[in-house]
């Protein structure tokens, strides 16, 4: 039952934290037009630029091929793994989740390789070593341990996934069910809950943050459309 409480708390912190952060970003004005140019001149163009940025990491590709490669492996792997995990939260399982299943299993390895690569850079490249804080290392350690503990349950010490699914469906229906006793499972789930709790307070905010980056989300049309923030408009009436 501890885990049931833990997951309710973790979910509330994650959701509440993200709602707070995002509304905070939304409330804060961007007083000047600062897209990094050349930039799209229309809203549609901006949507396209943002899509390339979020799905393909376009800027990172230009910036560092190694980092881009590992980041793609990690994020792509993570995305597939998350999709695969939907089967533990849905009844009946959505058909597209079934399609992902065979890829999702091996995506765990891809994710781990990506993480190892990203972590390796923090030791091997002097510039990256210089900027790394303890939390940068811990974050990677946490993610890597989640991946390894998850993979172990699949390939080494099989967990009673029927029981796991019953547990999560129970949580969804506010009818908590017991969690199968398994040290690996306990480890995996505690780590995931910690990640959820840390998310809204940490650099993991890069995920929602990218959508609010004025250098990426503004169309380049300052001569055609006046852009005025509320606090700047106040200066106007004062003078």
């Amino acid at each position: 039952m501890i885990f049931a409480a833990l997951f309710y708390a973790a979910f509330l912190i994650l959701a509440g934290g993200l709602v707070y952060r995002i509304s905070d970003y939304l409330r804060t004005p961007a007083p000047l037009k600062i897209p990094t140019t050349p930039a799209p001149t229309t809203g549609g163009g901006v949507a396209l630029r943002m899509t390339r940025e979020v799905l393909l990491f376009e800027s990172l590709f230009k910036g560092s091929l190694w980092t881009w490669g590992f980041a793609m492996l990690f994020h792509g792997g993570l995305a597939l793994v998350l999709m695969r995990h939907l089967r533990y939260f849905t009844q009946p399982v959505w058909s597209w989740v079934d399609l992902v299943q065979p890829f999702g299993i091996y995506a765990g390895f891809v994710m781990a390789i990506g993480l190892a690569g990203l972590w390796g850079r923090r030791f091997l490249v002097d510039r990256i070593r210089y900027i790394s804080t303890p939390s940068d290392h811990l974050m990677l350690a946490l993610l890597l341990m989640i991946a390894i503990s998850g993979l172990s349950m699949k390939f080494l010490d099989h967990t009673d996934i029927i029981g796991v699914k019953a547990f999560f469906l129970g949580l969804e229906h506010f009818d908590p069910q017991p969690l199968p006793a398994s040290p690996l499972l306990y480890l995996h789930l505690s780590l995931v809950a910690s990640l959820m709790i840390i998310f809204p307070f940490s650099k993991l905010l890069h995920a929602p943050g990218v959508f609010f980056s004025p250098s990426r989300n503004q169309p380049d049309n300052p001569r055609e459309h006046r852009h005025l923030s509320p606090w700047a408009a106040k200066l106007e009436s004062e003078s």
Partner: peptide, 14 residues
């Protein structure tokens, strides 16, 4: 907003 988002979002990717 730029300042706030930029101070939050960096992951030290290098």
């Amino acid at each position: 907003r730029s300042l706030k988002v930029y101070l939050d979002a960096c992951v030290h990717c290098g």
